[in-house]
Write a protein that binds this DNA or RNA. Structure first.
Length: 826
RNA sequence: GCCCGGGUGGCGGAACUGGUGUACGCGGUCGGCUUAAACCCGACUGUCCCUCGUGGGCAUGUGGGUUCGAAUCCCACCCCGGGCACCA
């Protein structure tokens, strides 16, 4: 009994035995370290977005790193020296909010979580170069975040500026534009308010054009590029000057439609416009205007931004001159005009603009048609399409409006009343946060010297220890009095440290640079080392970062390039965005109780099953629904391949392939080479892991079938199984390494990626599809390379083709060699 | 409203540039192994019809079109998902 039990154990596929064994080999031998020395191999930098360490890793992490690891392994085995590092985006609000609740230092809760992530990555068998690991909250890292900040500061790319900013009343901090989703804080969902505050900004808008244009140089999913284009929102148009004669002030407006200038019947300014009070003064409208402005400024960002709400506004009691025709048009203040875009004032053309039309309807203002082509009169609905100009000017009437745009701008330009202009939706990146757990901004405020950067040799400015993490609308760092009080680095006098910290997106905007030279304590990196790896060849992460992180990182790389610190102008040459894993069609969440945790799955089936299943479930860029039964199917497959390999290795000799292949051997060899070809194609370029794994399943099934039905030679059997293991390695590395070693004695990761032998891909004959009028009627065996006439004859001779052709006239015959023949009859 | 994706068996999905629709997996049915169950292994599995075959009709969201041939291309519409949304 003991013996048979042992024998049974021998045959069992046991990931609990297999996986730790190989993990130990890789750890002991430091297999996945990229090394420092250039050894002549082409390099490849494969990177997954670094995790935010909070609690335990979830199934989305597993997918992200399973995809990245498959790519990293494939690149290694196709001859590349691969950099595949790992780190942690460790500063951030969740750890701080946890600290507010529990008093546990964010550093400690983050460290606990990092341990969980490290364990998970090892349990999952992800091939990470651990020598480059760091957390962005390590002083040895954020020292250089501060250095980069100062680099940008010195070039004027980081600046302090007072403006209306987005404020989250729950998190008690300002937010970047990108962090406001539908008027709500992207972190906590509270309605965001507008506040007038002086804050730190990065001048990302200086890079708007390059961020836009260089999208053409990178291989990213088109929808991500589109999102970035829309976010940057470049609009070409003109700035046109309207003059208020009574006050003698000029008000430029930005318009994308100079062709409609003759249709401007009123003029609107944003409630925040600095001249509002001055304009209303002495008109009798002062009180009404003041009331309206106060009301508008107190609206929530969401209320204000709602395009469907009825238009409101009040007259200022002044007029401006329309520069194209000298007309005096009334001025209004209305909250549908935004101070942050253009000049904070617009010309209103109700005949050809939805918003102006709605406003004109409410306040009964004249509506004039200046572009013809609308189906209904412009009084009823604005016409926003193209057409010839009317009611404008003898020089322009009848001209196609597209043409008139430049004609009118040129004409205005000659008289100094306007000029071409470009506007962007993109705003500068507001980076300061009134929160504790972030990178301190390394500047000092001195009454005499103003803002003084902390000298480089005093970096890092360490985050001080504090007692109370509770946000109070000012940075909690304010409370660290001893830390705040400092001598001015410039004059030596009394000064105070900046107490705001940086947005965590600053930390993650350059981490991929640090990995290249992570242990450097003399500099953020050595440019020569960086040049070996950058840009990242393949970046992998969630599409939720399409704008935020992916735009900021591009900006950082461009700015650092301009400062002469790096060669690359783009951080990520290729981007892959993976889809979400859902359960029962819904996003996993604790409140829904539909969370699938990697831990129990791996405990039950092993990491290989979990990884391979996630890749097999469907195209990795799509969302996919988790199925417990599906996991079992993949587990069965891995077990089958492992058992077949183990048994074959134990029970058959290992002779060379016989010179004369039997039909069975040939079938196995063909299937193996077909699988090599298929998997290689699926891996290079496309990320078709699901069909790649399906091909390996087919190969394994073929082995089972042939072994069951016939008597293949051991060599063919071993080749087919070895090939299956070799191809499986990127998806299920432990099982594949184990099976491969048993079959060949070699380590699969040290083997080059298999190459398909064209002799086994070609076939002597193929199944020729015979169609009559486009419908498949028969199939016949045809010799490869047969010419048209032979194929036509073969098809015509097929019995079921005969049956359908009989009694009809053959009109023509379409022959597609190596595929089909279609007989067209009547 | 605008801009992207996407609708294929009972389910997840496959079909590279128009050329065998439904690979692979799940589920289901039947069978083998077993005292039994689990595991494992094998066969079948879009749908309807009949004269039961090497048979025929119908099937890729809906309706048209192009083509010898359409899941794939074109037009219109419906549904689902995502992004943007008073940006002048």
């Amino acid at each position: 009994l003991a013996l048979s039990f042992a024998a049974a154990m021998e045959e069992r596929y046991d990931p609990k035995q297999i996986e730790p064994r190989w993990q130990r080999v890789w750890a002991n031998e430091r297999t996945w370290e990229a090394g420092e020395v250039d050894d002549g191999r082409p390099t490849s930098y494969v990177l997954e977005m670094l995790p935010y360490p909070s609690g335990e890793p979830h199934i989305g992490h597993l997918k992200n790193y399973a995809v990245g690891d498959a790519v990293a392994h494939f690149h290694r085995r196709t001859g590349h020296r691969v950099l595949h590092p790992m780190g942690y985006d460790a500063f951030g609000l969740p750890a701080e909010n946890h600290a507010i609740k529990t008093g546990q230092h964010p550093r400690d809760s983050t460290a606990e979580s990092i341990v969980q992530f490290q364990k998970a990555f090892r349990d999952w068998g992800i091939s990470i170069d651990w020598t480059r690991e760091f957390a962005t909250s390590d002083p040895t890292y954020y020292r250089w975040t501060q250095w980069i900040f100062l680099q940008l500061f010195e070039r004027g790319l980081a600046y302090r500026h007072e403006a209306a900013v987005k404020w989250c009343p729950n998190d008690q901090t300002v937010l970047a534009n990108e962090q406001v989703i539908d008027g709500r804080c992207e972190r906590c969902g509270w309605e965001v308010e507008a506040r007038q505050l002086e804050q730190w900004q990065f001048r990302i808008t200086d890079y708007a054009d390059r961020l836009l244009d260089d999208l053409d140089t990178i291989q990213w999913p088109e929808h991500v590029k589109t999102m970035q284009r829309n976010w940057i929102g470049r609009s070409e148009g003109a700035e046109v000057v309207f003059r208020c004669e009574e006050l003698g002030t000029d008000y430029p407006v930005f318009t994308t439609r100079p062709d409609t200038l003759f249709g401007a019947t009123f003029f609107v300014m944003a409630p925040e416009h600095p001249d509002i009070e001055r304009l209303a003064a002495g008109t009798g409208h002062e009180d009404e205007v003041r009331r309206y402005v106060n009301h508008a400024l107190n609206e929530s960002v969401q209320e204000r931004g709602d395009a469907d709400k009825p238009k409101t506004g009040v007259a200022l009691g002044r007029t401006v001159t329309n520069p194209v025709n000298g007309e005096q048009i009334p001025m209004y203040v209305a909250d549908y005009v935004l101070m942050e875009y253009g000049t904070g004032a617009i010309m209103a053309v109700p005949g050809h603009d939805e918003r102006d039309h709605a406003f004109a309807k409410v306040y009964d203002l004249p509506i004039r048609e200046v572009i013809s082509g609308g189906e209904v009169p412009v009084e009823e609905a604005p016409y926003t399409g193209d057409g010839p100009l009317v009611n404008s000017h003898p020089d322009f009437d009848g001209m196609a409006n597209r043409k008139a745009i430049s004609a009118i701008v040129d004409w205005l330009d000659r008289d100094g009343k306007g000029h071409r202009s470009v506007n962007y939706r993109l705003r500068d990146w507001l980076l300061s946060r009134q929160r504790y757990w972030g990178c301190p901004i390394p500047v000092v405020h001195c009454d005499r010297c103003g803002i003084v950067p902390v000298p480089e040799d005093q970096l890092p400015v360490l985050l001080p220890e504090i007692e109370d993490y509770q946000p109070k609308g000012r940075s909690p760092l304010d409370a660290a009095e001893d830390w705040v009080r400092v001598d001015c680095p410039s004059c030596g006098g009394e000064a105070r440290r900046e107490t705001d910290t940086m947005d965590t997106f600053v930390d993650s905007s350059w981490y991929f640079l640090r990995y290249c030279d992570a242990m450097n304590n003399q500099a953020a990196w050595d440019p020569a080392v960086l040049a070996r790896w950058m840009p990242v060849d393949q970046y992998i992460g969630g599409v939720e970062h399409a704008i935020l992180h992916l735009l900021y990182a591009r900006f950082f790389v461009k700015a650092l390039h301009d400062l002469g610190h790096i060669e690359a102008e783009e951080p990520f040459q290729r981007l892959f965005t993976q889809g979400m894993i859902t359960r029962d069609g819904a996003k996993m969440s604790k409140s829904k109780g539909n969370v699938v945790s990697p831990g129990p799955i791996i405990d039950r089936y092993g990491a290989d099953t979990a990884r391979a299943y996630i890749l097999f479930i469907g195209p990795p860029d799509h969302d996919a629904d988790w199925s417990d039964k599906g996991v079992e199917g993949v587990h069965r497959f891995l077990g089958r391949l492992w058992r077949l390999s183990t048994e074959t290795a134990a029970t058959t000799p290992d002779p060379p392939l016989p010179a004369e292949l039997s039909a069975e051997d040939l079938e196995l060899m063909r299937k193996a080479h077909w699988a090599i070809d298929k998997v290689t194609n699926d891996m290079s370029g496309r990320f078709a892991f699901n069909t790649a794994i399906a091909a390996i399943m087919e190969l394994t099934n073929a082995v089972s079938r042939v072994r069951e039905a016939g008597d293949p030679s051991p060599a063919a059997l071993r080749f087919a199984l070895g090939t299956a293991s070799s191809l499986l390695f990127p998806f299920a590395p432990h099982t594949a390494a184990d099976a491969y070693e048993k079959l060949t004695g070699a380590r699969v990761w040290e083997e080059p990626w298999p190459a398909a032998d064209p002799r086994f891909l070609e076939r002597d004959t193929y199944e020729l599809v015979c169609q009559v009028n486009g419908k498949v009627r028969d199939r016949v065996e045809a010799p490869s390379g047969a010419v048209k006439d032979e194929l036509e004859a073969l098809c015509m001779a097929a019995p079921n083709v005969q049956a359908h052709v009989d009694g009809h006239d053959v009109l023509k015959v379409i022959v597609v060699p190596e595929k089909l023949v279609n007989v067209v009859v009547r």
